[in-house]
Computed example of a mutant assay.
Amino acid sequence: MTIQQITASVRQQVDQALQRHLSEAGAEQRLADAMRYGVLLGGKRVRPYLTMTIADICGANVSLALNAACAVECIHAYSLIHDDLPAMDDDNLRRGQPTCHRAFDEATAILAGDALQSLAFSLLSTPVADSVPSQRQLQMVSVLAQASGGMGMCGGQSLDLAATEKQLTEAQLERVHRHKTGALITASADLGVLCGIQQAQQYRSLFRDFAENLGLAFQIQDDIIDVTSSTEVLGKPQGSDQQAQKSTYVQLLGLDGARQKLLSLHQQALQSLADIPYNTESLENFSTVLLTRDH
């Protein structure tokens, strides 16, 4: 089974909801087209899958979980649009298609990313049901804000840019990726728990531990496939990290060393799930497929 097959149902639900939210947002046509292009142009929907699956395990309100999943994907899409810009990673391809600034222009791409970020917080703060305390939604806004900002994803991107053409230690590289990639993956899981019933909140730290280890392992697998897959399979230039002179786990530990590190993190992630007294088989299967993918 592929990761696309596992996430297919969530992807359909999230994409339909995003289409609706984008239509209701009322943005100027070119900006709306760029937002739609950035957030709906394929993608595995790893983060929304985590949010909705964990929310389901924790007995969540479905509408709240779907809004949270859409919010996470809006943040992820905005980050990719901005990461691809010439001032950042300067990429021309994303998911086998021209990047947003190539399909439109730089100014429109920047605005599309900004607007998707705003939409994310609008979705999280919208009242959904009387059964969901407003204090819980405020917690969710805080979780996503922290994961997205200077102490999370943006901070990680800043560390990554500063590290270009430099040799990082393993600890420094881990710090980059726990922020740049891992923070939003951890937040995706955390949001899923926060959508859930009160009794599920006691397992929040275990779900976070699972996602933190999964997030770093996910990045290591990205580093591995950057050197083992083709441009056609990846949907972006093969070896782009090496060409950009970025430190990677493969460059630092070697291919075998990176694979061993990934395996260790995966085992730690699975142990966290084993300590949760709910049926987490769907997350176990998901993590295995995610960490053995070729793109």
Rank of each mutant, 00 (worst) to 15 (best):
S158M: 15
L111C: 06
T53A: 07
S287E: 02
I197N: 15
D91F: 06
L255G: 03
T53E: 08
Q135D: 15
S272C: 10
I75N: 05
A211C: 01
T126L: 11
A8P: 06
A60S: 08
D223K: 05
S23Q: 12
S131C: 13
S131D: 15
L255S: 03
V128A: 06
A55E: 06
D130N: 13
T169R: 14
D160G: 12
A77Y: 02
T186Q: 15
D223T: 00
S272F: 08
E106M: 03
L291Y: 02
T169P: 02
C74K: 01
A120M: 01
Q157W: 07
R36P: 04
R45Q: 09
L173E: 03
G156V: 01
G59Y: 08
V143D: 03
R208V: 08
K246V: 03
Y37T: 05
N67T: 04
K44R: 11
G257P: 06
S23Y: 11
N67A: 06
V176F: 09
I224W: 03
H266I: 08
Q4E: 13
E281S: 15
D83R: 04
Q198E: 14
S131I: 11
G96L: 08
S9C: 14
H177Y: 09
Q219H: 08
L31S: 01
A183D: 00
C74Y: 05
A27D: 12
G149V: 09
I81D: 05
G182I: 08
T51L: 09
C195E: 07
T108S: 04
E106S: 09
H101R: 13
Q219Y: 09
C74D: 05
R11Y: 11
D223L: 00
C70E: 06
A115Q: 08
P86L: 10
I81S: 04
N92W: 15
Q243C: 12
L270V: 07
R20N: 15
A71M: 05
T2N: 08
F104A: 07
V141W: 08
L80V: 00
L64H: 00
V39C: 02
G215W: 05
Q201G: 01
N213F: 04
A71R: 00
R136K: 14
L40K: 02
D160W: 11
